[in-house]
Every structure is written in C-alpha cells, then in structure tokens.
Amino acid sequence: MARIEIEDLYFSYRPEEEILKGVRLTLDQRPTAIIGQNGAGKTTFVKLLKGLLRPTGGRILLDGQDIAGLSAAKLASRIGMVFQNPNDQIFKNTVMAEVSFGPRQIGMPEDKMRICCQKALEAARLTGLEEKNPYDMGLSARKMVAIASILAMDTDTVIFDEPTIAQDHVGKERIRQIIRGLAGEGKSVIAILHDMDFVADVFERVIVFMEGRILMDGSVREVFADRDMLERAYLEQPNVTRLCHELGYRGVYLKVEELLHET
C-alpha cells in the first residue's frame, strides 16, 4: 500500500491565474471520492499526483519521497490514472494493444503481463473484444477500455477521473465492483465524480474541492449531511438523502437499502 501526503500544494497553468491554492491532505486506505464544481481544480490535482504536471509550490510525497525526484517509469508503476476523456488516453488501434501498452511500458514481465491484461479485460467486461478498434466503439465502451488499460498495470494506487461518464446502470455496477475489488486488494482508490448517488453508494471518504481549495474532508455521511456546505460548493445531496430531508426525517440516509433496512 502506498502512502501519499500532499503538502501545501500550489499550481497555476499561467502566472495570472492560480488554480490550486494550498492543498494539504494525506490519502489513506479508504476509497476516496473527490467532488466539486466544474473548474474547481479536481483534474489538475490528480494530474499533479500522477506527475503529469509540476507543482508551482508545495510537495507530494509518495512513501515519504518527493515524487519530483522519481522517474516517470517508477511513478507510472505506482500510480495509475484513468483520464476524464478516453480520447486523451487511447491511441492504439486495438483493445489488446491499448491494454497491454502500459504494462509493457513499465517493464512488467511477459507472463505477469498476460495475467494482468486478462484480469483487467475481464473486470471491464471486454473479453472477446480484444481485436476491436476502440474508435469504432461508443463512448461508454471506450471508457471501459481506458479503465482496463490502467487496471492492467497493477499499480497500488488507482485514480479515476469521472469513471461513470456515459455508463448505464449495469456499467456503473461494474465500476462499483472494480473499485470494491481494488479496495479489497488493499489498493488506494481515488475517484472524481459528479454523480452523488454513486459517491454515496461506493465511497467512504469524500473530499470537497472549491476554487482550488479543500472545503471539506470527511466521511461520506458527514459530507452529505452538511447541506449548507454542499450548496456553497454547487453540489447536492444524493436523491434518497434529499427525499428523507424533505420528509422531515432526522437521520442521514444515503441509499434506498439503508432506508428500507429500518422498516
């Protein structure tokens, strides 16, 4: 398991506009969701974690070591990231070539690679589609290819930037299982999401971003109980939580099962 500490992180793409304004936090084992308004800096933040951008201030420590001092290959073997838009990530013309690209790049031994790719394809339900061209697939399937490509690298931290985009409920369930599976293997999972019902269902810790800062960091229940804070951050409670609030119930119910459990 990896330990990631973020110390006073600052970042700007151009000098006149600061995007991250002092982010401090330590990531732990709990599956963690990052939520927040469009443009809050969520994608920028995870790109920094992945070493794709350099901080303009502060540090990111991986097991106590500043990632600025790690080689790209070394970092790639520890932290995997699924891009928000699969078009930014996918560039091979078969599913198999795409999925095996990452493992090969980080020097994974051939036999382990075969197993990892197969497992990743299975988890994303792409078995049998290995020879398809990702560009002949719809957006939802292409996103699954992007997810499988990262799973195949078997990193101990996995970052998902809006994994549920375009997925139907079966697809979302699949992603839920993937995240649960990773957590079960002791890996750290961080995901950016706009779907509050999915966050309530799958994650334990929630970090709220607002205008380049962390507005709140707490358990999923704490965060979704705080209506004022959510409104300030342009967010909303999950559907069931909203309904229960409207009905005047005191408790914070995150999903239908929780509510029905009490009947």
Binding site: G36, Q37, E162, A166, H194, Y234, L235, E236
Partner: peptide, 13 residues
Amino acid sequence: DEPVSQLDPQGRK
C-alpha cells in the same frame, strides 16, 4: 446526447 454527464450538480439543474 447526454449533455450534462460532466457537469456539476448545480450545472445539471
């Protein structure tokens, strides 16, 4: 075609 898939909850509304 799924116009708000990447919008924050306020933006969706």
